[in-house]
Structures are given as structure tokens and as C-alpha cells.
Computed example of a mutant assay.
Amino acid sequence: MFRFSHGGGGRHHHHFGPRGGMDPERFFHWAERLNDGAQRRGGGGGGRSRRMFDGSELRLVLLKLIADQPRHGYELIKAIEALTGGAYAPSPGVVYPTLTLLDEMELIAEEASEGARKRFAVTEAGRVHLGEQAETVAALIARLEALGEHRARGEGEGAPVRRAMHNLRHAVGDRATRSDATPELLHEIAALIDEVAQKVERLK
């Protein structure tokens, strides 16, 4: 693994794995910090946002969404974001390991799909598990929908910034962690982000 510094006197460091893609653990840590900073600047309460679900709850939510229709990780993130009206979206750093766990538990299974993304469908065991946890699942989905309704009633002045940061986090996360993400591509992504950051700092 190696690192490079981009601008700012070496302030920004980007890490790459042996195949050229950004090291996932470091990338997702950076993405969470990016999103947290946007929420603080956008009126998100002045501190780190609390986690919406614990691990078992997130597993049930993802399993329910996959049971509704087969999806890959990015589609699941966007589905949860849509349920909350953009107020919340789980990070790729928690979604993808949870999908791996659900697969190992044989509650979902990968199905044939075009492209590099893994799309998952629910198994019979997964449907049985959802049936056993029906009340809990309904409460979790209701929690997401209530958050969306609250957001719709009064988004606040920081809402456009939070929405834009959500979009940036997802777009960068989706592109930077693909298997074909080369160091040159990641340099380009970093340069674009740095350019936007500099323009924002110069705003009056």
C-alpha cells in the first residue's frame, strides 16, 4: 500500500490497496467524517449523529428491503435514504459487511446480474426469519418513515447542504471502491473534491 498527498501542503492523504482501489476501511472512515462534518455545518445538532440502528436491526431492514425486491448494496443505501426523505443513509462501510453476514447466514443469496455489483435475493430461510420478526421489522420501517415525515415537515436551512453531501458521499463511495478504480482515477476524484472545497472556502 502507498499514499500520496494532494495539495494543501500534504494535508490530504489518500490510501490505495494492492489492486489500485482505495483501501475500503480508510475510505469509509473518511466518508463518515465527510458526512459528519456536513451535518455539523448544515445544522445537524452540533455533534456526531447517532447511529440509527444496531447491527441486528440493520440486518432486518436490509433483509426486508431485499425481500421486497432483489437489490445490491448501493440500491439498499438509496432505498433507506428515500424512506427517510434524505435524512439518513447507512454508510457503505456498514451495509456491505452486513450483506456478507446475511449471505453467510443463508438468509440472502447472490443472483445473476449484469456488471460488477452483487445483487442479492432473499432465500426461503430469509422469508421465514422475516415472518418470525414481523413486528420488529414493521417497527423499524415505521421508524424510518417517521424520520422522513419529520424531515418533510421542517427540513431546516441546512437541508440542501446535507442532501448534497449525501449525494457526494454515495457517488464517491460507489466509484472509488469499484475493482476498476485506478490510482489515476482516484487522483482525479480527489482533485475534484479539493477544488470544490477551495471554492466553498472562498465563498463570501
Results as ranks from 00 to 15, higher is better:
18 P>W: 15
21 G>C: 09
153 R>A: 11
147 L>Y: 01
58 L>P: 04
134 A>M: 04
142 A>M: 09
70 P>F: 09
178 R>E: 09
63 L>S: 02
200 V>F: 07
119 R>N: 03
82 A>Y: 08
91 S>I: 01
97 P>K: 02
78 K>N: 09
168 L>A: 12
14 H>Q: 13
200 V>T: 08
163 R>D: 14
91 S>G: 12
131 G>Q: 06
39 Q>P: 03
111 E>G: 07
65 L>E: 10
5 S>Q: 12
171 A>G: 11
10 G>M: 06
184 E>D: 12
32 E>H: 08
188 E>H: 05
76 L>S: 01
68 D>K: 07
147 L>E: 07
125 A>V: 03
181 A>I: 01
53 F>P: 03
62 L>Q: 00
83 L>G: 04
191 A>H: 11
35 N>S: 15
195 E>F: 14
62 L>D: 02
176 A>D: 02
99 L>K: 00
23 D>W: 13
44 G>N: 07
146 A>M: 13
102 L>W: 01
119 R>I: 04
189 I>T: 02
4 F>T: 10
137 V>P: 01
61 V>D: 04
76 L>H: 06
147 L>I: 08
141 I>D: 05
108 I>P: 06
124 E>K: 09
109 A>Q: 13
55 G>D: 15
170 H>Q: 15
178 R>Y: 06
179 S>M: 15
93 G>C: 02
188 E>G: 12
118 K>M: 08
45 G>K: 04
108 I>V: 10
74 Y>T: 06
174 D>S: 13
13 H>D: 14
104 E>N: 13
113 S>G: 11
198 Q>E: 15
154 G>M: 08
141 I>S: 00
83 L>F: 08
169 R>P: 00
52 M>T: 06
162 R>E: 04
182 T>L: 09
138 A>N: 08
154 G>I: 05
187 H>R: 14
24 P>R: 07
54 D>E: 13
124 E>L: 05
105 M>N: 06
38 A>K: 04
89 A>W: 03
134 A>I: 02
138 A>W: 05
132 E>Q: 12
118 K>C: 00
35 N>M: 15
61 V>A: 03
177 T>R: 10
173 G>P: 04
17 G>H: 05
23 D>V: 14
108 I>M: 07
16 F>D: 05
157 E>I: 06
156 G>R: 06
33 R>D: 14
117 R>W: 11
15 H>Q: 12
62 L>F: 00
141 I>G: 01
117 R>D: 14
45 G>L: 02
43 G>W: 01
5 S>R: 14
20 G>H: 09
77 I>V: 09
69 Q>G: 11
1 M>D: 11
38 A>V: 03
197 A>L: 13
60 L>Q: 02
13 H>K: 14
28 F>L: 09
161 V>G: 11
14 H>F: 14
159 A>Y: 03
151 R>Y: 10
186 L>C: 10
47 G>S: 12
74 Y>E: 10
75 E>N: 05
77 I>Q: 08
40 R>S: 06
144 L>H: 02
47 G>F: 10
145 E>M: 01
58 L>A: 01
11 R>V: 09
17 G>I: 07
57 E>H: 04
174 D>V: 13
179 S>E: 14
3 R>L: 15
45 G>N: 01
171 A>F: 10
157 E>H: 10
162 R>T: 02
162 R>A: 03
